[in-house]
Amino acid sequence: MEKARTVPDSYPLSLNTLVIGCNQKTTRDPIMNLSEAEILTALDELKTRDLVRPASGSRVARFEHNFQRGVGVFEQAAVLLGMLMLRGPQTAGELRLNTERWYRFADISSVDGFLEELQERSEEKGGPLVVKLPRAPGAREQRWAHLMCGPVDVEALAAGGGGAAPSANTSMLEARVVVLENEVAQLRATVDKLCAELGIANATSTTESPLSPS
C-alpha cells in the first residue's frame, strides 16, 4: 500500500522488493525480519482473502494489494489503516503528517472524522477497524490503533507511550531513504538477471545494502 503511492515506478512489487519493504528498519512499528518463505505464506493467505493479487504483464512474479476493495473502505480510510499498520498507534495529527505522501487530508478534523467512522463501523460490515486509546500520562492527544489483527491490549498500548510526531525534515529524509532502498533493489534485480544470463556469480547478491542499518 505504501509503495504503490510513494514509488509507483517500482510497483507492483516483486518478491525481492517485498522482502526489502517488509524488513525496512525506518518508520516501522513493529520492525520485522521476515524470510522469503514467510512472505510467500502470507501472500497465499492474503490472496485467499482477496487482499492481494498477482500482477500480469511481467516475466518476474509481482504482486499488488487489493486492500481498499477487499476490506470495503474508502480510500482515505485505507490510507489511515495502512499507516497505522506500518507505524503503530498515532494521534490524528501524526497520521495527517505521516500520510501526506499517500493522501493529503484537508485538516486534522477530517482525519478524526474518518477514524471515528472506522471505530463505529457496524457489525454487518465487519465491525470496528480502529480503537481510540486512553490518553497516555503527559500526552495532550489520544492515539489511535488498528484492529486489523484482532483486539488489542488497550491498557498496554496506552501505557507504551510513543514517540513524538517526526519533524518535516525527518519525514523528508526517511522518504528519501525509502526511495533509495527501492532503487537499490531494482538495480540488484537487474544485476542478478544479467549475471544469470552471462552465467557468472553475483558477489553483490549476498551483500547487505549500504542503506540498511547494521
Rank of each mutant, 00 (worst) to 15 (best):
R5K: 07
T6S: 06
P8E: 01
P8F: 01
S10N: 08
Y11E: 01
L13Y: 03
L13E: 02
T26P: 09
T41S: 02
K47L: 01
T48H: 06
D50F: 06
R53I: 04
R53A: 07
R53L: 06
S56I: 06
S56A: 13
G57L: 00
R59F: 09
E64P: 06
Q68S: 09
G70K: 00
G72C: 08
G72V: 12
G72Q: 05
F74H: 14
F74E: 15
V79K: 03
V79Q: 00
V79T: 13
G82P: 00
L86S: 07
P89K: 05
Q90S: 14
T91A: 07
A92I: 04
A92F: 11
G93I: 00
N98W: 01
T99P: 14
R104M: 12
D107G: 08
D107C: 11
V111N: 04
G113S: 07
E117P: 04
E117N: 08
L118A: 02
E120T: 05
S122C: 04
E124P: 01
L133R: 02
A136D: 10
W144D: 01
H146M: 02
C149P: 05
G150K: 04
P151L: 09
A156D: 12
G160A: 11
G162Y: 10
A164E: 15
A165E: 12
P166I: 11
P166S: 11
S167Q: 09
N169H: 10
L173F: 13
A175R: 05
R176E: 09
V179K: 04
E183L: 13
Q186D: 15
A189G: 14
A189F: 08
K193H: 12
K193V: 05
L194Q: 13
N202M: 15
A203L: 14
S214H: 11
